[in-house]
Amino acid sequence: MKIAIASGKGGTGKTTVAVNFALALEDVQLFDCDVEEPNCNLFLGFDLEPVEEVTCLVPEINPDWCTLCKNCASFCKYNALAALPNKILSFPSLCHGCGGCRHVCPAESIEEKPRPIGMIEKTSSKNSLTFFRGILDIGEVMATPVIRALQRHIDESRPVILDSPPGTACPALAVMGCADYCVLVTESTPFGFHDFLLALEATRALKVPAGVVLNRDGIGDSRVEDFCRAEGIPILLRIPDERMIARLYSEGIPFIKEMPEWKEKFKNILKTINTVTCKSKGV
């Protein structure tokens, strides 16, 4: 079972839910897929060790063999190659690593060299909780390849929780799309509701079943609740708008550590998800 924790809007509590959920379940894997802002470990404080460097294959042109036919530059859809009268200029940071330039080069003068764009790390200590995260280097644009590289480390035989990036663009979809279930974290405010609808639309397009965690419950109004009731979307958990929870969050302490009564509530999320997904499969 792969469960993605997602939201349209940023700052609704994805990381809080992901970390507390993982700590409550204990024997699970937690993957921090928000590679632009990987924040889970701020709350876990694990010692991490590098697993692999994520690279993108970029072209290197051998000027001795290059015939200046310009096929590569006119093929590249990302403007990563430019043809000058006397040489081909490459812009590695624009390259998506599709390998097309090498394929179209008649002189075989293009070789591909790996260029680092990010890093995959995991817990070095033996914990019942397995933790992996990906980090996109500052100034790099390609979050999705780092997410895909990270996902290759998922052990399919064990349950996994994926902390997704915000939004509904490509990187978020790469996470939600690989999940069996999506937990959408939102708050019942105009912004929260609007962005929740975008995220819900994404899960529907991906055909991944979804449920809701209502965070900062008590602020705003009942628009999320009313909508969920009408649409038959389960509300898996309500986290109240309590100063204690906000305080623990600000300190980087997962709140179930200080408020153990929440452990059961988080465990129940998994039970609900299992029931719902079994039902939808007709079991």
Partner: peptide
């Protein structure tokens, strides 16, 4: 915002603007 993630992400954002 005064949270561990707020500070962490502020640092990354400032790294970007100085870049």
């Amino acid at each position: 915002e005064p949270t561990v993630s707020g500070l962490h992400d502020l640092k990354r954002a400032i790294k970007l603007t100085s870049h």
